[in-house]
Design a protein around this nucleic acid. Structure first.
Lengths: 341, 341
DNA sequence: TTGCAAAATGAAAACGTTCCCGCAATCGTT
DNA sequence: AACGATTGCGGGAACGTTTTCATTTTGCAA
């Protein structure tokens, strides 16, 4: 009946009694912050605690200390590989700083996002990391007003402390790569327009176009969601017309979209890498393992994670919005256009 | 400096004072378990609490109550889509029962698994759900000995309460499907032999072979890891020989392995669905979206999640090991063998 | 009205830590 | 040997809840 997890638990009082010291002394001896006391008594307490299998009660401790050494992470969904990877890196970075990372998922709905954030705050996290930010998001604003320590990752609202890849540069690199290969007819499929990542990557793509004097037709600049199915739909739109009217290259603002485009290309009998060059974004592990490995813009997630956590606790050091440099990884999916063979 | 997340916080004392009642009354009025008190005073307290923006301090509450309404979930990694989906379902099931799910990742190392479990237990979770179990795992054994409420998902050690898909049936369905299509030369790539899922799926495959009077050659029964790269290696082994010596079908014990086999097939110029029939396992969302959509054994994760949580809190009701029925989803990747065209 | 059960209330004692305070012991310096 | 400075120690008061217990109030029937 009782869902008691812990067995009969050893409290600090037990340890103190067994060591023949007071509660206070035992507490101090086991305080792992700062330098461990080197007195003989303290050493003895530590031995006894170990022997008895004492584990500090985190609630009592947090209640008294007023901090939890816990970080809340909010992501739209974990089944999106990029988000899962981001969380894994955040977990690692948090752990190396003595923190525990706790995740909640919120989908794409601002209300759910708000609710999920409250859930995390109710668990008294010391700070919050959001991978969900919209350009005009209410949540970061409220967090700022309430004085909640937080940082945004991967996406920014332009105001709250943020750690992300430089999407403008990434978009530029991708399209520049395609242009350098000889492509002129290039389609761009971006993510949802409420994300800074989509806007940034599109801006970078535009810069590359402008630099090369290419006038990108509006019908080949599509905004989509970040899911495979969105990529598929976009792919149908782009490739569905007469073969002569197709672009020779596509820049997909994320690897999921690219996967959708691949499926659409297959449906229309267009060979990726030969008939159509394709560049994705994020370089998820799958990309390198596809039948035709996917060129993609790699983003240093580990670095972004570390920076994000530093921003949560020291928002005042350095610029509030930190951008990490992405790298283009060329693979077989992006070859020169047909006529160049 | 101070990593204070919450602003100046409203305590129960404030609410009580503002409502003109005692602390105890305020506490009772806001107790959300059981039936809410219907007295006028209680109603008033709730209003005041709402107006003041009172949020119960979860530590003080948990400390006093001795329960946390928190569930710890241990998975090898979240970047594996199946694990991410499993966690999302567990999170949902937990939430609908008033629990919060907390995840930790442990890789494939038993020591890390132990450490991660301790981390969760240190946070006083009311129960633990493991998706990491090995057949001869120490951890479930220790949890049983310590009397920690727990359940295993997706994999079982055969002893602790477990909720998983019926892997034997799934393996049978997959291979039976291939046999029904006319295949006789079928390779099977299973997962790591320390997982019950790999063992079960292989056993099911064997039953299908036996039933059809097929003597599966040992060289086509490969044990691999559950990653794409393992599938690729296995694919190289299977398809690397002379074309005449290749199987006409492959059952991959998970979709990642299938993805690897696809890549290997591509390398050897073998067309999936035409030259080689392929069936995966788990039916991750990507499978349906591949260029050649992948046939796969679908597993009801939501149901497994619900059962798992029930098992944690009521391990004595019904059988300890519950198996959910998988379904085969045939798609374009599994066609009849060439000579049948 | 009176009587009695049921419901609501306030005081106070937990829950297991940490931390402030005053005091004693130890240390290094002249 | 004497001095101040450091360090370690135990007592006890927090931290914000929940819960027990004794008491008071309410509701209802006679």
């Amino acid at each position: 009946m009782e869902p008691t997890a812990a067995g009969a638990s050893i409290t600090l009082k037990d340890v103190a009694a067994a060591s023949g010291v007071s509660l206070s002394t035992a507490s101090r001896a086991l305080d792992d912050r700062g330098t461990a006391s080197r007195s003989a008594a303290a050493e003895h307490v530590r031995e006894v605690a170990e022997r008895l299998g004492y584990r500090r009660n985190s609630f009592a401790s947090s209640l008294r200390r007023g901090e939890t050494r816990t970080l809340g992470v909010l992501v739209p969904r974990l089944s999106d590989t990029v988000m899962a990877l981001m969380f894994e890196e955040l977990e690692r970075a948090a752990s190396s700083r003595g923190y525990f990372a706790m995740v909640a998922t919120s989908g794409d709905d601002p209300d759910d996002e708000q609710r999920a954030a409250e859930t995390l705050l109710d668990r008294n996290v010391d700070g919050l990391i959001l991978a969900t930010a919209r350009l005009d998001d209410e949540l970061p604003r409220r967090l700022r007003k309430r004085g909640v320590a937080h940082a945004l990752v991967l996406r920014t609202d332009g105001v709250s402390p943020s750690s992300l890849g430089d999407d403008e540069v990434g978009g530029y690199l991708a399209v520049r790569h395609l242009i350098d290969l000889g492509h002129r007819d290039i389609a761009v499929v971006t993510g949802p327009s409420f994300t800074s990542s989509a806007v940034g990557r599109l801006a970078g793509a535009r810069r590359a176009f402008a630099e090369a004097g290419i006038d990108a037709p509006a019908k080949w600049l599509l905004a989509a969601g970040y899911g495979i199915e969105n990529g598929y739909t976009a792919g149908e739109t782009i490739l569905g017309g007469h073969a002569a009217n197709r672009p020779t290259a596509v820049f997909a603002a994320n690897d999921n979209i690219a996967l959708g485009v691949i499926a659409a290309a297959h449906r229309f009998g267009v060979a990726i890498g030969e008939d159509l060059a394709l560049v994705g974004y994020n370089d998820i592990p799958l990309s390198a393992r596809l039948s035709t490995p996917l060129s993609s813009v790699h983003v240093p997630l580990a670095q972004i994670a570390g920076t994000a956590i530093d921003l949560v606790f020291n928002p005042d050091m350095g610029p509030r919005i930190r951008k990490a440099m992405p790298t283009l990884i060329p693979r077989a999916s992006s070859g020169p256009p047909r006529q160049f063979d």
